[in-house]
Amino acid sequence: MEYKDYYKILGVTRKATDDEIKRAYRKLARKYHPDVSKEKDADTRFKEANEAYEVLKDPKKRAAYDQIDPSRPHAGQGFQQPPHWNSGAGFRRAGPADDASANFSDFFESMFGQGFGGMGGGPRATRRQAGVKGQDHVSRVEIDLEDAFSGGTRTIRLRAPTLDDRGRTVERERSLKVRIPKGARTGQRLRLSGQGTPGQHGGPAGDLYLEIALRPHPYFTVDGADLILELPVAPWEAALGTTVKAPTPAGAVDLRIPPNSNAGKRLRLKGRGMPGKTPGNLYVSLVITLPSTSEGEAGEKQRALYEQMAEEMAFNPRARLGV
């Protein structure tokens, strides 16, 4: 049986605080979760992180684990429990391997046993299993920009933990109704209480954290709370100025194009970006678009107009480049 260095697995020191341990675990859970990770050893690394966190998040388990000196020879293959391990600690085997630790290593089982309950007491202490809270679960979910902009309740499908007929934790596809807050952004997490891994022996279920990712939009680019739109305009619209229709997530609006607008000119629509305590802005970047030259007589007229413009409006648009 191999000794497990739980601190090394989570990438923290033995003096790490509870918050540091939690952050390290969540980082690994996001990286190696089988739903999203493409790493070859993702499943193994995910289980190792779960096992390490199961011990280090619990003050009693962590204190008992810290009694082991990792520098001693027993820290390698052939690890044996320290003498009188169970005396005072109270970690005992308490039933068949069907609880939350069923997928953990032999090292974990030898140290804490199934159920890992019954703290304190003596020979007459009760062997009743304590309820075990289920593991938290992290899933990435993609939503459309329109859903993030308007918010509301949406039904999503994802793979999430549940119990099979034999009481084992498995992942199955299921539908969940989720309330999307207005202005939801990529990276934001939504917590669904009690929707994580089911608890054991009457313990509460863990929580499900949905990590939002916005799907690419055909018109808008998201930059924090702001939105960016590239708006095509005709050469004469940019030169003479006019009012055109411009799309926004809330619907089309009238946008005034100032005269003599160059390509790339940015116009700001205040408060038309993503909703929030401080709404973002919508920045419209002008893209001057030429009409396609037609064939036949119509095409000849268009070319004649371009030639006339070249003669009467001749200028060097590259003068500032020194060429």
Rank of each mutant, 00 (worst) to 15 (best):
Y3E: 01
Y3S: 08
K4L: 08
D5Q: 00
Y7N: 07
L10K: 00
R14Y: 08
A16R: 06
A29G: 01
K38Q: 15
K40T: 12
T44H: 00
K47C: 01
K60N: 13
Q77E: 12
F79I: 02
P82S: 12
P83C: 07
H84Q: 06
G90E: 01
R92D: 06
P96N: 00
D98C: 02
A102V: 05
D106R: 02
F107M: 05
T126E: 14
Q129T: 13
Q135L: 14
D144K: 15
T153L: 14
R172Q: 05
S175T: 04
V178N: 09
G194L: 13
Q195K: 15
T197Q: 15
T197Y: 15
H201M: 11
A205G: 09
G206P: 12
L208G: 13
L210T: 00
I212L: 03
R215H: 09
P216W: 05
Y219S: 11
V222R: 05
G224Y: 00
L227H: 04
L229P: 04
P232G: 06
E237W: 04
G241P: 06
S261G: 10
L267P: 04
L269E: 15
R272I: 06
P275Y: 04
Y283R: 08
S294C: 05
A304L: 06
Y306Q: 05
E307F: 10
F315D: 09
